[in-house]
Amino acid sequence: MGKYVFKRIIGLAALLLGITIITFSVIHIAPGRPTDLEAQFNPKVSMEARERIAHLYGLDKPLHIQYIEWLKRFARLDFGISFMDSRPVMQKILERMPITLTIELFSIILILLIGIPIGVGSAVKEGSFYDRFMTVFVFIGFAMPTFWLSLILMDFIGVRWGILPISGIKSLEFEKFGNFEKIIDMSKHLILPVFVSAFGGLAGISRYMRSSMLNVLKQDYIRTARAKGLREKDVLYKHALKNALLPVVTILGLSVPGLIGGSVIFESIFSIPGMGRLFYESVMARDYPVIMGVLVIGAVLTLLGNLLADISYAAVDPRIKLE
């Protein structure tokens, strides 16, 4: 097991290098130089001043040198300084990351809790009304434009019925609340965004679960189990489900980038100060160091997600042993 993990981590390092190269190129195909951001407001800034700033940021060096320098700093987990407010990029990302990850985590849990039963049910009752109904239901979630659904929910649940807060993650009086109230308050704020995020991701897991389950149910060992006269319930839930769940673990890892990517939309609409919004803001302001930082960290999170998924897969599945 240890050897397997070690091997994977070496592989990851190679992937990481690739990630940084792609990110770096993406940023540098864009027209314009980041120094424009510094200088654009000021009619008094001369070309010399721009060049001085460019030099300050090392932008006057050839690309590959810039990349290597960036990489050296990256090795020390230093993503540089934000052009926008001169704060360390790492600090900006770290203050935004927890809330995004919290929402992601909750929505993954919700997706699993709802998606797996739906998928299993659909597979067991393949072709039934239930199956078709659930197919349409999960696709509805996928097909609704996130911001459209969010606005409709906010309008009805937040404004008209006043059941839940509309946006943000905390009430304005949050600091004055007791601990218990704080938890309630935050949960209330998170219900809508988590729901929106989970509803959109339901289709992926439940459809995958359904086909995985259908696949397992066709296997010989299930037929054997049935032939041996095991109760249908035991066949389904003890034998089939266990095996059908395995591949779902890997798909979980793959769904991380989608969730992170989607965060731009619901963080904007729900005014959540997370990574998605940080990314959008820095893209709009051409804050290159932050753009680089978020892209790389997003990719690293995905890598970690995949690694975790693979390790747990290997841990659960007796067929996969240390390669």
Binding site: V26, I27, G32
Partner: peptide, 21 residues
């Protein structure tokens, strides 16, 4: 390996960055 790398990116971030830039 290239595919693996591409799969790591939050695709929407990548699209957003390139289109905005």
């Amino acid at each position: 390996r290239f595919i693996d790398i591409m799969l790591c990116f939050p695709t929407f971030f990548l699209i957003l960055a390139v289109i905005a830039l």
